[in-house]
């Protein structure tokens, strides 16, 4: 069993090395960023402890993915399998539990801990026979898959926006609106296997343009009702709403082309940092998007003629 955790440690080190990061520095920095970010979010957002608990639960549930659990069950005895799952869940939950405890949310910390133990017996994450109907089936695959994976986030965002509209909180409504477009952007976060690019009988420019048109069209489908509601409830802020819409669509475009900027590898660390700067400082996107577009066409040239 110790061998299993040693192997996971080696895998983590290798992943960080592949990202071009010194693994030990990477671990220290990750811990620091986690603490600082947690602290900042607790400071800025009221009742953040409940969202924090939800995040912890989502993280812990990742260990319950069906494929890896079938593999573990197959190679370990029942007792050792349960020990591994217990240790994994506790390891994943512990950073959140510690922060909650440190912040004085003792009950939340205890609930998070109990949750991480309760989901020990839930190992069917990721496989479902029930097919969620997707309105994006005509142009697969990012939006149809993303919609099925994150429909709950979209429902949550719509619910938060409606509450914000009813109580007249413009800032919360606009925050939810941006979050919606960021969710659309996240549909393009992972690069697909080469085969799924290779099948296209298009040159890189046409391929990217088609992807961008699809992304824009489907983002519009998802965000238009919110945009109309926002303008309807806050007509005096129409310019801000339209500016945020434009900015959000640029985020989605960035997501599409950044996916291929280091293809077939995932987006590099430097590219991720550049994207983060673009998200915080949108005018930078005007430089970043053409740059990523050029990089993407160069990378796609190897697979598309």
């Amino acid at each position: 069993m110790a061998g299993y955790f040693r192997l996971q440690y080696h895998r983590l080190i290798r992943t960080l090395k592949d990202l071009g990061i010194n693994p030990y520095l990477g671990i220290v920095f990750s811990a620091l960023i986690f603490i600082l970010l947690s602290n900042e979010l607790f400071r800025r957002i009221s009742y953040f402890q409940y969202i924090y608990q939800l995040i912890a639960l989502i993280v812990v549930l990742q260990a319950g993915k069906v494929g890896r659990n079938e593999f573990l069950k197959n190679i370990y005895t029942v007792i050792n399998y349960q020990k591994i799952r217990l240790l994994e869940n506790l390891t994943l939950a512990s950073p959140f539990v510690i922060v909650l405890f440190y912040k004085g949310f003792y009950l939340c910390a205890l609930v998070t801990l109990c949750f991480s133990l309760l989901v020990l017996w839930y190992n069917k994450v990721g496989r479902s026979v029930f097919v969620i109907p997707s309105p994006f089936f005509r142009r697969p695959f990012e939006f149809s898959i993303g919609f099925r994976k994150y429909y709950w986030a979209l429902i949550l965002i719509y619910a938060v926006t409606l509450i914000a509209l009813l109580v007249g909180n413009f800032n919360l409504a606009i925050f939810a609106y941006v979050s919606l477009l960021l969710v659309c952007m996240s549909f393009y976060a992972t690069a697909e296997p080469v085969y799924y690019v290779w099948i296209h009988a298009q040159n890189p420019n046409v391929f990217l343009k088609e992807k961008m048109i699809t992304a824009m069209l489907y983002s519009l489908y998802i965000s238009l009702p919110l945009c109309v509601l926002l303008i309807g409830f806050f007509p005096l802020h129409v310019l801000i709403i339209l500016s945020v819409t434009l900015c959000g669509f640029f985020y989605v475009l960035l997501g599409v082309i950044a996916k291929y900027a280091n293809y077939p590898n995932q987006t590099s660390l430097i590219q991720i940092i550049a994207m983060a700067i673009g998200l915080v400082f949108p005018p930078f996107l005007l430089l970043l998007i053409p740059y990523f577009y050029k990089k993407s066409t160069q990378k796609l040239n190897a697979y598309l003629k």
Binding site: G126, V131, I132, S134, F137, R138, R139, P140, F141, S144, I145, R148, K149, E192, P193, Y195, Y196, I199
Partner: peptide, 15 residues
């Protein structure tokens, strides 16, 4: 390789 949460119909549509 098949993407998760993609139906057989959508796979054919993609191709």
């Amino acid at each position: 390789f098949f993407f998760s949460k993609m139906t057989g119909y959508e796979y054919l549509q993609l191709l």
